[in-house]
Structure formats: structure tokens, C-alpha cells
Design a binder for these strands. Structure first.
Lengths: 340, 340
DNA sequence: TTGAAAGCGGTACCAC
DNA sequence: GTGGTACCGCTTTCAA
């Protein structure tokens, strides 16, 4: 079986290529099954021939001619991260329902990689991009905007970009929620271990923590320890031991990875939660329920984040009016690690 | 900034489009930096103009004309699975080093979805496909083969497919290894909880388990409980309690998901490992090290699996000779769950 | 309803 | 070394 083109179908069906093109692109209205200016019988015949010959549209040709590809790109920072892996599914489903194909490319939390992926993606005549910005990723994202490709920022905000859509979590609220949960249980010496990643998300979670502590009258207890993405292991071990020594009662860990690191350190050193140290983590993972004492954590509305980002992008692509910035609310999943 | 084409560059640089095409496609040899029949000064000028104008090759046009896209597709069964997420990175890196772009599309363990992804992928003039077969996925995979697109089966074998490359784990060996590890510790009543997924991988792990048990003289202890992918939770709870009641000493869990389910059941019911039940799991996860008593597990050589699959695919695409079936060896990561 | 023909932006082949 | 030009397969006027 070799490449079957629209011409082959046209010849075999005894019609022009135009007709075949019409038929192949016809979405069927909810009534019977047509919507194009082609006689039903002709359409049926074309369809039959196409199927018989195993015709498959050449996306490259279609995209070249029409300038559209019905394809959107999604660039998460780490595809193996449960947060993005979960969101990906919702994005795919929603995109599919709009007739878009989705291409994934991970930036691995690197601006250079983001730039490379963006180049590839732009070369493919993509209709729009959903991207989670990384530190220093501004130029790469600007490229898309300058090429007139609609961009939606997902999960992380980035200032100074014009005409971009945004679908974010209310991270300040998330920080407050986690902190208030611990405060509500009666903990007072609550601290954070955070990343120097320089992304909006984490900064706002820190902000929420601070606000909640202030409001509760424990401003003097506010303390955030910073580590670096990638080699956090040693730092975290040090922080945790130090915290215990200083009588810290609880920690808010604003990402899954820093939480996993912390749990590892605690396990190695026989530090029990919540007895020795109460915890609230972030995002979902099997680890939270399987850990000795299940871990309380902030949950993001993955489905909504995924679906909304596609919706916003679609509106931008089709130039339809609609919300362009959407902020969603987190929720808290309780667990033994926050008990008192 | 609007679309800049090769023509714009040609005009601006005062050369023909042919020259621009040459220059844009020139890979630089390790010496200075050319490899094409273009005078260096001309090449430099073209390059400068291209950069100034912000030229970006239109992949659709290139692919349409040349019939190649320098793009390969990877279709795992579940992108959020640590196994595939890990492999993806190695695939991307290796593919990149060969000058390929990678497109991902998950089949979600569904033949229908695999078919849809395959259609999309074939429409894109893809040069080759790396796919993890799902049950009933034969027709979808045949499509690619019939379209003369090279196919490499990753992780799972599927019989009756001609001219496909294969990069697999020695799953019989993995089953033996896990079982022998437990036998070596002195366990005798060793059983398995497995899936009725109907994929080669799991069947062979079962085979390895049986062989090892037989060789050790415990043939009469061989017992495999089967559950179904998706709704294993209740089954597993039942199996585990039943196993305990029957005096089973150890379980070999041949996938991450069945292992995670088992751990959840054990935690809920206060069943301790290895005291009440010894375990050997499969694949990697943070869970294994963070679980109360760390979990011994079989590890697959992700890097090799990923790199080899790209290599095999490349050889097939370029019609270069080389191994077309590669079987890699697993290893075992010990953990407290297998102690005695 | 239908069809002819003009490109979309590159690449490949050939001539100079 | 360099340039001219016929396509790749499809969509999209425009006319019939």
C-alpha cells in the first residue's frame, strides 16, 4: 500500500479533487450527515472510495496551503511530573473535542530547551501554544507572540507579556489554605522550605504563607528556607534537622518534589509526622497516601486547569471574545501529617 | 513580525532560493563550519540575513516536498507512568542527537485511542514510530507498517507483525530474578498478583516466576491471582487478605500499579512488610523508597531501552543494517520488603 | 453542485 | 558555486 492522495480518490470516484476536499473536510451537522455543498450521493461515493483506498490526508500539505494546522502545542516543564501528566490528559481530551491535535514537548525546566522546543513547534505552523514558563523563558515565549501565535500561560505567571492568556492557580490562596490548616490544628511555629526557582507560583505560595501567619499573629515565626531545584537533597536534610533543633512544629512544602525530599530525610532520620514535625505538601502523588502517616496536601483542580487553558487558547485562535485570564481555587486534602 | 519565507531571505541577501535552502540545511562539519557547495562568505551573509529577518523554516512545506519530516512519533500507553516518563527523556535526547523531532501521543491503554493517535501521526508524514502495543492494537500498528513507516515495538512484544524492530526487557529473566531473590532469602510460599492485560510483558514475568519456583522445587506453591487493569483495587484487597489467610509468605508484583495497590491495601489493614508479607515490586517510583519499609523492586534499564529504540528505528529509517531485535536485562534494587 | 487552476514554502534536479 | 523552475498534496478562489 503506497501513499494515496486526494487525486487518486478523485479519479477513482470520478469527481474533481475539489469535491473530495469538500467531502473530507465536512463535519457532519447533527442532522443526517452533511454540511457541504455536495450532493449526498456524491459525498457517500467519495467517502466509500476514500475508505477503500485507505486515503489519509497529508497534514503537511493541508497546513501549508491553509496556514492552519489544527494543532496546538503544550510545553510543560516536566512531563514526568504528576501535575503536568494529569493535566495533559484533560488538555488532550478538550483539544480533541475542538478538533485540535496536541503536540507535547517538555522544557525540562530549562530556558534553552524551551527555546528549542518553541522553534520546532513554530516550524510546524502550530495554531497556538500552552506553556508553563520557566525562569529565563521570556525570549522563547516572545518568539511565539511575535509570530502572532496565541499563547496561554499555564500554572505559572510571567509578567510583561502582552496579549497572552493565563490559566493559573490562586497560589496565594493555596499558601494561606495550607498555613491556616496547620494554624487551625494549633501549630504556631510553622515554616517553609522553598525553591529559588524564580517563578510566580512559588513566590505566591510563600506570600500566602506569610499573610496567614501575620493574620494569626505569628509574624515573628515566619521563616522560609531556600534550596535550589535539582540538588535540593542535601539542603533539605540540613534544613529539616535544623528546624527540629529550633523547635519548629510544622512545615509547609510548596511543591511535590520538595515534599518528597523532606519525607525522605524524615524517614532516614526517624523523624515522625506529625509527632515530631507536622506537614502540608503540594500536588498529588501515590506517596501521600502510602507514606507511613498519610500526608496532607494542597490539590490543584487539574481538570479545570487543563480544560480552561484549551478554551482560552481556542478563543484566542478563533478570535472569539471571552475571559483571557482565569484564576482557579485550590483545595486541601487532609492527612495524618497535619494532625495534632 | 509576519511570516518570513525563504524568498524574503533570498531577495534580501541577493541570492537565489536554492542557495538559501542549501545554507539553511547545512550541518556544520567539525572543522570550521560548512559542508555545502556554497562559498563561505555567501553562506555567512545568508545566515546573517536569515537571522536578522527572523526566518524560520516552514516544516510543513519541507516535509511536503521532501517526503521526510525528520520527526518520529512515540506512543506510550500512559505518559504519566514513571516508566514511560523516564524513557521519554532518553528517547528525546537520542532522537535530538540524530536530528529528529519527537511527537508524543499516549494510547491510554486503549486500542481505539491508539488508532486515533496513529492516524494523526501518519497524517504528519512521520518518519517512524516507536510504540508500546496495547491489547487489540494490531490493526493500528499494521496501518503504519502498511504505509511503509518503520515501527519499533517498545517494552511489549506483539506476535505476527513483520518487519518491525523490537526493544524489549528480558521479562522472563525479570520474573526469575524477583522470585529467586525471595527464594534466596528463604521464602517458599511465593505468589503473584497479575493483570489479565494480555500483553507479552506480563505473561513473561509470570513465566519467569513459574520457572524459578519450579527450579527451586516449589512447583506446588505456584499461584497467580488475576485482576483487571483499571478496577484492581477491590480485587487486590481481597487477594491480599486471602493470601495472608492461606499463609502466603511473599508476593511478586509485576507492575508498579499492582504494587501500589497492594501497598495501599497492606497499609489500610496494618499488614507489615516483610514481617507479614514480603514483597518484590516492579519499575521505579518514589513510593518504593518512602514506604515505611522500603520496597525491593525490579528495575528496567530506562536509558538503554530509550536509546536503543531510537537507534533501531533510525537504522530502519535510513535502511542501514543493524540489530533489529534487542532484549535488555533487568536488575534488582533491594529493599526492606524482601528481608527475612 | 461541480471543476479548473493558482498557489502555500520549500526541495530537488538540472543548467549555467 | 549559483540560479531557474517543476513539483509535493492540499485548500481555495472563481467560473461554469
Amino acid at each position: 500500500m503506497k501513499k494515496v492522495t486526494i487525486k487518486d480518490v478523485a479519479r477513482e470516484a470520478g469527481v474533481s479533487v475539489t469535491l473530495v476536499s469538500f467531502v473530507m473536510n465536512a463535519k457532519m451537522g447533527k442532522d443526517g450527515r452533511l454540511d457541504c455543498p455536495v450532493k449526498p450521493e456524491t459525498a457517500a461515493r467519495v467517502l466509500k472510495v476514500a475508505r477503500k483506498l485507505g486515503y489519509r490526508r497529508n497534514a503537511a500539505a493541508a497546513s501549508l496551503r491553509s496556514g492552519r494546522s489544527n494543532t496546538i502545542a503544550v510545553i510543560p516543564t516536566d512531563i514526568s511530573n504528576k501535575f503536568f501528566a494529569g493535566i495533559s490528559r484533560y488538555i488532550e481530551d478538550k483539544a480533541f473535542s475542538y478538533g485540535y491535535t496536541v503536540l507535547f514537548g517538555s522544557s525540562e525546566e530549562s530556558a534553552e530547551r524551551l527555546d528549542a522546543v518553541m522553534d520546532t513547534v513554530l516550524a510546524y505552523n502550530i495554531d497556538g501554544v500552552i506553556v508553563a514558563p520557566v525562569q529565563g523563558g521570556m525570549p522563547a515565549i516572545s518568539k511565539a507572540i511575535n509570530s502572532n501565535i496565541p499563547v496561554v500561560l499555564l500554572d505559572r505567571d510571567m509578567e510583561g507579556l502582552e496579549d497572552v492568556g493565563k490559566v493559573l492557580l490562586d497560589d496565594v490562596e493555596a499558601g494561606k489554605m495550607a498555613t491556616n490548616h496547620l494554624l487551625g490544628k494549633g501549630y504556631k511555629k510553622i515554616e517553609m522550605i522553598s525553591y529559588t526557582l524564580g517563578i510566580s507560583t512559588i513566590k505566591e505560595r510563600e506570600e500566602g504563607y506569610k499573610v496567614a501567619m501575620k493574620e494569626a499573629g505569628f509574624e515573628e515565626n515566619i521563616n522560609i528556607q531556600y534550596t535550589t531545584y535539582g540538588d535540593a537533597k542535601a539542603d533539605v536534610a540540613h534544613f529539616v534537622k535544623d528546624a527540629i533543633a529550633r523547635g519548629v512544629e510544622a512545615l509547609f512544602l510548596p511543591t511535590y518534589s520538595v515534599c518528597a525530599q523532606t519525607l525522605a530525610v524524615m524517614k532516614e532520620n526517624g523523624i515522625k509526622t506529625p509527632k515530631d514535625l507536622a506537614l502540608v505538601g503540594f500536588d498529588e502523588s501515590d506517596v501521600y497516601s502510602l507514606y507511613e502517616n498519610s500526608v496532607a496536601h494542597i490539590v490543584q483542580p487539574l481538570r479545570e486547569l487543563g480544560e480552561k487553558s484549551v478554551q482560552v487558547l481556542r478563543n484566542m485562535i478563533e478570535k472569539e471574545p471571552g475571559e483571557t485570564t482565569i484564576i482557579l481555587k485550590p483545595s486541601l486534602m487532609d492527612g495524618g501529617s497535619a494532625d495534632k
